[in-house]
Write a protein that binds this DNA or RNA. Sequence first.
DNA 1: CTGGTTTATCCACATGCCT
DNA 2: AGGCATGTGGATAAACCAG
Length: 311
Amino acid sequence: KTVAFNPVYIHSSVGLGKSHLLNSIAWAAGASDPSLKIIYLTADHFMYHFITAVQRQSALAFKEWLRGIDLLLIDDLQFLQGKSATEFGHTLSVLITGAKQIVVAGDAPPRDLEMLDERVRSRLSGGLVVPITRFDLELRRAIVNRRTEIAATRFPGVSFPTAVIDYIAYSVTSHGRDLDGAVNRLVAANQLTNEAITVPLAEKTLADLIRKRETPRVRIDDILKIVSRHFKIPRTDILSSRRSRDVVRPRQIAMYLAKSLTSRSLPEIGRQFGGRDHTTVLHSVRKVEQLMRDDGELCQEIELLKRMLSD
DNA sequence: CTGGTTTATCCACATGCCT
DNA sequence: AGGCATGTGGATAAACCAG
């Protein structure tokens, strides 16, 4: 047998069957060679084991144990966050170097995994990266159409207006299973209440299936890049501990942007700004807000930066 | 340069919100 | 009951700024 690609990184949004795929891989590998040692873990489980191992001073034993594994599958990498992520990154790169087969899955491409350091990220990008894309609109429409036809033969009174089919196909963007679920639920609602199937009914019944418009992801990397270019100061200065005004202002503005444009927490942002304390970030945010209150020009400048970042 | 002021930063801790 | 996020109050030392 050959190790063709290592590591393999699978990414897709939630609900498209990543975990299912990972489990299938594990099962198929086990079926083809029962002697293989295969471990499937979610990232937080992995981290839990790792941390308890460190606490029990048995980190070495833990690493030995890992080395004995032939196929390691780690799921939900995006849940890996916080202060131990960097330590985890270390272990991960040791593992990858260890030449055993690794399969990792997460909900973003490797370069967006900000909690991992650059070396690990490029490590992951260097392997095989498999994106699983959503069904596109036409395919979703076709699936819904098919489902409604089946429903119509089973429940003669049921009919789906085209507008409702479009609505479902447009709004429910996750896995095919959810598209089925949407149709079933509408049929059920219709059977129970005799209410005609309309777009408003669909809106009401399917509220929880419709993922709210995901705020376009802004990465802190991008904020750093844009801010450092705009103020003509090197990115390393922003991350450094220098405190001269010409570097502090941009730094604070960047932190403010990170807080308002991403959903990262204060400690998380602090960590990415050269390991600063979360209260420093808080102070920066407030400072910038105050500066904006009594300086319209700065206000516009920051609005400009915001627009540049969220296109 | 010097002495005083401002403030970016960190720390210890409190509170509230989810599990 | 414990982790995580947001906040408060205080201390300190790095910049800043007259004189």
